[in-house]
């Protein structure tokens, strides 16, 4: 049983991080905090890929003369590009947040939903009058 624990240990760390990100995403109203939650979630996925690619006793995948066993280079490639794409999409999310702040004066999701509702109710009243 003890052996089992260390066999699957990496997955459990990943799941813990992923759930921490998920919790941040659904439990908080602040949009920036939500973006950070998404980033933690994302980094958990990175961690999963990289840990799956590891071979015990293997070396980093750069060919050298006296090394026989290498870790799997494929997950590294996928995650390497994913990190850079991740920061680009994070920037896009932050840009959206800035526009939301300028349009609504707040980045609290509940406030935004409330303001939208108020605006719609007002519009409905105006229609009713006409």
């Amino acid at each position: 049983m003890m052996l089992d624990f260390f066999d699957l240990y990496n997955y459990w760390v990943v799941i813990f991080l992923m759930m921490a990100g998920f919790y941040t995403l659904i439990a908080y109203d602040n949009l920036i905090k939500k973006i950070i939650g998404l980033n933690i979630f994302q980094s958990a996925v990175f961690m999963l890929y990289i840990s799956v690619g590891k071979v015990s006793g293997g070396s980093e995948p750069i060919a050298a003369d006296n090394i026989e066993l290498y870790s799997n280079p494929l997950p590294h490639v996928l995650i390497l590009t994913a990190i850079v794409v991740g920061v680009a999409t994070t920037a896009l999310g932050l840009a959206l947040t800035i526009r939301i702040k300028e349009a609504y004066g707040t980045i609290n999701e509940n406030d935004i939903v409330q303001m939208n509702r108020d605006a719609e109710a007002e519009k409905a009243q105006e229609w009713g009058r006409e």
Binding site: I32, L94, I98
Partner: peptide
């Protein structure tokens, strides 16, 4: 530690550098 030196390189440059700056810029 997990042998992914290229990935570590990227993460250190992006995560600890650029994305922190972008978030501060937003704040």
């Amino acid at each position: 530690v997990l042998d992914a030196v290229d990935v570590a390189f990227t993460e250190a440059a992006v995560g600890a550098g650029i994305s922190t700056m972008l978030m501060l810029g937003t704040l």
